[in-house]
Every structure is written in C-alpha cells, then in structure tokens.
Nucleic acid binder design. Sequence first.
DNA 1: ATTTCCAATGATAGTTTTTTTCAAGAAAGT
DNA 2: ACTTTCTTGAAAAAAACTATCATTGGAAAT
Lengths: 151, 151
Amino acid sequence: MESRIDRIKKQLHSAGYKLTPQREATVAVLLEHEEDHLSAEDVYLLVKDKAPEIGLATVYRTLELLTELKIVDKINFGDGVSRYDLRQEGAKHFHHHLVCIECGAVDEIQEDLLDDVEAVVEKRWNFIIKDHRLTFHGICHRCHDKENEEK
Amino acid sequence: MESRIDRIKKQLHSAGYKLTPQREATVAVLLEHEEDHLSAEDVYLLVKDKAPEIGLATVYRTLELLTELKIVDKINFGDGVSRYDLRQEGAKHFHHHLVCIECGAVDEIQEDLLDDVEAVVEKRWNFIIKDHRLTFHGICHRCHDKENEEK
DNA sequence: ATTTCCAATGATAGTTTTTTTCAAGAAAGT
DNA sequence: ACTTTCTTGAAAAAAACTATCATTGGAAAT
C-alpha cells in the first residue's frame, strides 16, 4: 500500500523537485501534527528533533514549496504569524476553521458548507471561484460548556 | 444632519478617547478610500498629505484603536501585510471579499450570505459565532471577460 | 490665571517574522 | 570524472510592526 509520504514524493517529483531528507522530515512533522496549526517556527523546532542540523530557511523554503503544490495551505488567523495546514487528500477546497476568542483553540470543519453560497457568488458576481478561506470567530463548545457549569 | 465622522467621534468619546487631528485625518483617509483595502503604510502615506507631521506609529496606534472599537476590520489576504477596511455602519458582521488571483483586485460582497451556514455551524459544532472572515480566491469578472475577448 | 495632570504624539530603537544572499555540498546527467 | 543544477545552512537583510521615551497640548483642578 502506498503511503501518504510516497504520494507527496510523487507530487514533488512530477513538479521537478526531490524529496530530500530535510523535506521529508518537514512533511513528517506536518503529518504528525495534522490537527494543529503550526507556524514556521513551530515546525522548525519540531523538525529539529528529527534532523538537528536543519536550518530555519530550509523550513521556510519547504513550507513555501508545499504551499505552491497545494499540499499544505498557508493561513493567517490575525496573530502576526503564518500557519501551515495540511490539505485533506483530494479535497478540492480548503477546509474551514473555528477560532475561539476565549481560549484560542482552533477547530477544523472538513465539510464543505459553502456549495450553495459559492453557486450564488459565481453567478451573481461573475467570479470563478478557485478556493476560499472561511474562519468563524466565536466561543467554542468547551468554553461555552465551562461557562454554563459555573452558573 | 450628523455626518459619519461625527458618529465616529461619538464612538471614540464614549470609549474614553478623543478625536485628535491625527485621528481625524486618518479616519478621513479611510472614508475617502472605502472601496480600497489599505495597509498601514498606505494609510500613512495618504495621511501625510493632509497632516505631514504625522508619525507612522500614530497611524498604527489609530488603526489599532479603530479595530478595537470595531469601526474598521483588520484583514490579511496572505501577502504579509495587514489591511484595514471600514465596516458598514450597523453591519453586524464583516463583509466578504473576492480576491482575483490574476490581477490582484479585491472586490467586496456586502450581503451576508452566511446566515444558513452559520446556523448549521452553531448547532452542529455548538460554537457561538461572533464574527467571520470569508474570502474567495479566483478569477474576477474583468479578467474573465478579457480572456473571452481574446478568443 | 496658573498649575497640574495625563492622554496622545513623533522619533527612534527594538522585535519579530520572513526573505535573500552566498558559499558549500549533494545529486543527477553526460 | 566533470559539469551542471538543485538544495542547503548560516548569516545578513528586509519588512512589518511594537515599545520606549521625552515632549507636547489641552482639559481639569486649584
């Protein structure tokens, strides 16, 4: 059975790049933290455990490359750092996010809830949608539950 | 009749701030460029025409203040700069954006198309939505038309 | 009126994040 | 083996933003 990393390797190759040990370590970190939303610095520190000799610039370059190939998506939640998020394999669009304004947690919504909205936008604004970014800011179920308990 | 700037002045006052000449010049620039999505640097350069002695730090501080009071919204289209966008008066949510990947134009959608989606999210994820960010990336009507002409 | 106070400012230094440069190293092609 | 190209690490540089601090200017107190 072909693993995820093998398929990424093929994607790189078909775009004319190779999967160097540094790139492999970086991808491995991203795979191991699929649920998280790591900054370049975060990734760098985690990769260093696997490959201590890696440089920060290489991590930035790798993340940029993976973004270009649409293997990861670069997002910004407004805190001054770019974060990198693996795309679901085969997903045609980027998933959505729920950012809690109380605890800072970021949850993901994998379902694509925007089909109807996109149909309206494409028609009414004559805009051909290639991708989207949707983030909700509010209070997550955990903080919400906690507040209710306190009452 | 009360003008927009008067209402903003009141908002500042009721939060314990005053509308200094520098703040007024900054707000004026934002009002004159409502359609645009200016960076702090952009605002700074435009404000300098009205008030040449203003400092960049003051512009940053004013934009931060206006963001806090929800008079403007701070957005990030992924190009490494924060941009500032006046909120429609009385709008409960931030409007949406169409970013063209060909020409870079940014158009606005003032209608709130997300009511249904938000109802689903609040119910299914038990998340209390306070605000949202929605941006579509794709090809705008102008670039689209241009391509058709060429054929 | 004077004085006192304090928010607000401009200039500048400092941070933080990201990008560029450049020399060296590894890999692939010939 | 030799050349070419890609990739890398280290360090410098750039870009965006924030903090510091002395000064100012206007409101409030006396």
